[in-house]
Write a protein that binds this DNA or RNA. Structure first.
Lengths: 129, 129
DNA sequence: ATCTGAATTGACTTTTACGTAAATGCCGTG
DNA sequence: CACGGCATTTACGTAAAAGTCAATTCAGAT
């Protein structure tokens, strides 16, 4: 169900991160939850941003890189020069991701091989799989 | 061409890293170049290891995780318990990589969308692609 | 023999991404 | 209204992964 607001602890549980981390992301300008008094209220859009941040983290992007990527998800700018610049940046990030994909496939392939070696070795030792 | 030995600077140029970094990896036990006097001589196998390390880095793995992965590439152990344990570890890493792949595809998809928005916006502004 | 350029070691510094602790605010419940 | 339980702010701490710097050493060219 989609709700109006999430509390900070709800989100720490959902994403398995600490409150410190969420406040840190706010300090870094990655998210801007609204306030009721001093208490942070997170909207669905903030939650979605957090999901994107976690994805970026798992892929090994730094906070700065994640900030850049998040910029790209936002509304495109109105000025032609800015638009062309943004398209260029997006293309760079995509190339970056394609490199990661190659790295990933190669690593997976080598792990497949490693596992096969183990299974063969087990067979040699007379273990029935 | 495959050579007997590489010097440290050759490899720093090839992989675009510093000598400090290679020495750091040696301190961490990831590579073990042989010595002639005090000078390090890197064999093709060391070079290949460095390639694997760089791949791991690009994928956001920590030195410890990379160390684990490198262990998996080595000769499988001789004892059945160890073999089964290693197979389990390999499977865990693969699951990790599959998660990264999902993250990667999602991020790429969102970037595709972002670029499309930019292109549309350019069209609205009357720019002929 | 001297010079030069590359390599080495060791110590210290830096950056990133949070963790942790202390002191305090807010709020619903008994 | 006192209490327990989250939240918040401020400040300092830390581990990982190198960067930087200084002092030296060594091999090869002149």
């Amino acid at each position: 169900m989609i709700r109006e607001y999430y509390t900070i602890t709800e989100l720490t549980r959902e994403f398995d991160i600490s409150t410190r981390t969420l406040r840190f992301y706010e300090d870094e300008g990655l998210i801007q939850p609204v306030r009721r008094g001093r208490t942070r209220l997170f909207r669905p859009s903030d939650r979605h941003l957090i999901r994107q941040i976690m994805r970026g983290k798992r892929l090994g992007f730094s906070i700065n890189e994640i900030r850049e990527i998040i910029q790209m998800y936002k509304e495109p700018p109105g000025e032609i020069g800015q638009l062309n610049l943004m398209i260029k940046r997006i293309e760079e990030k995509r190339e970056d991701l394609r490199q990661k994909r190659r790295d990933l496939e190669e690593t997976l392939a080598e792990l497949d091989q490693a596992e096969e070696s183990c299974v063969e070795r087990l067979a040699e030792l007379g273990v029935t799989t």
